[in-house]
Design a protein around this nucleic acid. Structure first.
Length: 749
DNA sequence: AACTCTTGAG
């Protein structure tokens, strides 16, 4: 590869012309007047307007220049080169051939070809060209060459190469004080994620221009140092540098990230008062700022007044509506926009997925396929995440196969999403397979795999993986520890949990957060060490949150400790007065302890306070389509068959001695008004549908948004035995693998 | 003969 893209050594090329002959000698064999210089030839004027030239136009001029013998002349040849590499529709392979045939390229020529590749899809070529300039040409790179080469390094976020270029610059007094070169370096370090280095270069620039300031402000903005970025913007004034439209783009973007509408409006009026040149990019940045600050009204009025709009403008509005829950309006924008690119699709798909509407996200993903929108990595990450949420394993597998078929590169993000999808869709072995196939893993990939093993109750393996992660020298982060503690909790590994928790700060330098404390409460509580768990809650360095009290309440429910349970529930309700789940668990605790009076009282109280609960919903995927069921759902096209199947289930279960557990009807409260609704719980509808539409040995995979109730859990166990079908049920907290009449959670969840 | 900084989806 490297040899193929290197230019031929100039001396290896046939020398048709003597470069020392300064050009005029080449006109011997054609009909140019002898005295005319090559750089004056009228055909060159045709090259002046890059923008209006298309590929054909360039080819024609190229042919004429060949006939005229103009290409042997470095000046005229580079005019052609500039035209074909810098036009908007540049064909760089063509430019490269032109370059390779220029007998003795001068420095200008080298600079043009490096520049063209620096902002092309593969900037590595620019760096390779730069190195062949050093090795194969008599010229040394100058103050024009470096900005292009540094830009290429910035595009690649190639810190090592960038620093090497910086070192070369530092050796030359002329280069190291050149504002263009230094501005490029400010940008380079920012692009490599090092805003400190970036600022250090900025501070050493002798005469900073507006681009210097813009680069530094952007460096701070991208490094998340928003207030410092704004401070720098204020300081420009003091140094008498006038902000321009590019400055304001960065400032607006910072403002959006801070979500500060007050400031946003001040910025907007600053732009108008100071006659900042308006541009499409600036308008888009302002639109985005208003959307991020939550002011759709400001965004709308700006959008309506814009004379030119591109797909970024439209997509920004779309996101504004979708993020505020106005999906109909978002869809309208999507349908109205003149041109949709893949980012527009991604925006809508991601918004659905992030608002907990995975079915809509996947419907839209299917639609994008039919619309011939080629999915990119962002699309696939969003679609995989929607699959994870709804348990759509088949579709997830299809996406995985699609990636392999199209040789899509697995980046860390996609790898993490795939592992997460397989784990959450119940196929943790497939997740392990993906994990084993990738050669490079970052902390998120490792953490996702640990989480996958944890949610399937395979705690030992999760801890083994953590040890391997450290051997691989990947630093764990706060999420890793949440997953490790979660693994300990689901597998009952009390001592291990205690050990890792105690090591967090001293060994790994990670302060335990409220989440980690809650995990410890869960670990100790599940194991029946309620007093110790209570001690953790009471001695947290931060005020205990709902998750800590919730974990304690759950443990009390399992171990039937009414007194402590009531205390935990009271605390929990003080933090979240409308937490429906808290009442459900407390009533569960009362029921298990035989306190039916208290159960009845709670139920009445809940009815009176008209607490709305999250609707229980189970989804099941059959042949790549996700079907959702609510309690007593009659909206499914196959409802008659489903209800017949339910009756069949009921009679066969009854024959096996099953008695519906009416007393626990409050537990999951899919419908607290009708006790008989018990057997219409969404899980049961989904199981019935699964029995109808799929065949052994394929397991029936169901995903439930709430914790599975006692009754559904017993039914699933019985069905797995009576119908000889494996059922894999994911509830809000973990997986249940039902086989031959029993469950992998050992009835402890 | 020319260069450096900017906007939407994750």
């Amino acid at each position: 590869m490297a040899t193929r893209i290197l230019p031929s050594h100039p001396s290896a090329l046939p020398r048709t012309h003597d470069p020392n002959n300064n050009g005029s000698g080449c006109s011997r064999s054609n009909n140019l007047p002898v005295r005319r210089k090559a750089e004056d030839h009228p055909v060159l004027a045709l090259l002046d307007d890059h923008r209006r030239l298309d590929a054909d136009g360039i080819r024609r001029i190229h042919a004429r220049m060949l006939r005229l013998g103009l290409l042997g002349h470095p000046y005229s040849a580079s005019r052609l080169l500039a035209a074909c590499s810098l036009s908007p529709s540049a064909d760089l392979r063509y430019a490269r051939r032109v370059f390779d045939h220029i007998p003795a390229p001068n420095l200008f020529t080298w600079n043009i070809i490096i520049r063209a590749h620096a902002s092309a899809p593969d900037p590595r070529l620019a760096l390779l060209l730069f190195s062949s300039l050093l090795r194969h040409s008599p010229h040394s790179p100058d103050k024009f060459t470096f900005p292009f080469a540094i830009k290429a390094a910035a595009e690649l976020a190639a810190l090592r190469e960038g620093a090497a270029l910086h070192a070369m610059v530092a050796k030359s007094p002329l280069l190291r004080s050149d504002v263009f070169v230094l501005n490029s370096l400010v940008h380079l370090y920012a692009a490599c994620g090092d805003s400190n280095l970036s600022l250090r270069v900025f501070e050493k620039i002798p005469e900073r221009d507006v681009v210097s300031w813009n680069s530094a402000i952007t460096a701070l903005a991208q490094g998340g140092r928003w207030d410092e970025a704004l401070q720098l913007f204020e300081e420009m004034d003091g140094e008498n540098v006038r902000p321009n439209d590019v400055t304001m783009v960065s400032v607006a973007s910072v403002c959006g990230k801070k979500g500060d509408l007050e400031l946003g409006k001040r910025i907007h009026s600053y732009i108008e008062r100071n006659d900042i040149k308006q541009s499409l990019i600036l308008d888009n940045a302002l639109l985005d700022m208003f959307v991020k600050c939550g002011s759709l009204a400001d965004a709308e009025s700006l959008f309506d007044g814009m004379t030119t709009k591109d797909s970024i403008s439209w997509t920004t509005m779309l996101v504004g509506y979708a993020k505020s829950g106005q999906f109909d309006a978002a869809r309208r924008v999507f349908d109205e926009m003149p041109r949709r690119d893949i980012a527009s699709w991604n925006a809508l798909i991601s918004c659905y997925e992030q608002s907990g509407r995975p079915k809509e996200a996947l419907d839209l993903f299917h639609e994008s396929q039919h619309a011939d929108a080629t999915p990119d990595q962002v699309t696939l990450v969003a679609a995989l995440s929607a699959c994870s949420q709804s348990g759509a394993l088949e579709l997830g597998c299809w996406i995985h196969a699609y990636m392999e078929k199209n040789n899509l590169e697995l980046n860390f993000h996609l790898t993490t999403s795939l592992i997460d999808m397989y784990s959450k869709c119940g196929d943790v072995d497939k997740a392990l397979h993906v994990f084993g196939c990738v050669s490079r893993r970052d902390v998120f990939v490792w953490s996702a795999m640990i989480a996958g093993l944890a949610m399937h109750g395979r705690g030992r393996e999760a801890l083994d993986l953590f040890e391997q992660m450290q051997e691989a020298k990947v630093e764990p982060n706060t999420v890793t520890f949440t997953n490790i503690l979660c693994a300990c909790s689901h597998a009952g590994l009390v001592e291990e949990g205690r050990l890792y928790f105690s090591q967090m700060l001293p060994v790994y330098g990670i302060s335990p957060t409220a989440d980690h404390y809650s995990c410890m409460v869960d670990i100790l509580g599940r194991a029946g060490r309620l007093e110790e768990a209570r001690g953790y809650v009471e001695n947290m360095p931060m005020p205990p949150g709902a998750s800590a009290w919730g974990a304690l309440l759950g443990a009390c429910a399992v171990h039937k400790n009414v007194e402590l349970g009531e205390l935990a529930c009271k605390q929990l309700l003080e933090l979240e007065p409308r937490n429906h789940g808290a009442y459900v668990i407390l009533s569960n605790l009362y029921a298990r302890s035989g306190r039916w009076d208290a159960v009845a009282m709670l139920r009445k109280w809940m009815k009176d306070s008209s607490l709305k609960k999250e609707a229980g919903c189970s989804s099941i995927e059959v042949h790549g389509v996700v079907h959702e069921f609510l309690v007593g759902d009659i909206s499914h096209p196959m409802k008659e068959k489903i209800y017949l199947q339910l009756e069949d289930m009921a009679s066969r279960l009854k024959a096996a001695g099953y008695v519906p557990n009416r007393k626990l009807v409050l537990q999951d409260i899919e419908d607290d008004a009708k006790e008989k609704a018990l057997y219409l719980h969404s899980e049961k509808l989904a199981i019935a549908f699964g029995l109808l539409r799929s065949c052994s040995p394929a397991p029936i995979r169901i995903t439930k948004n709430l914790r599975v109730c006692d009754d559904c859990h017993s039914v699933a166990k019985l069905v797995s035995g009576i119908y000889n079908r494996n059922i894999i049920l994911r509830d809000r907290y973990r997986f249940h693998h039902f086989t031959g009449g029993s469950c992998s959670c050992m009835d402890y969840w």
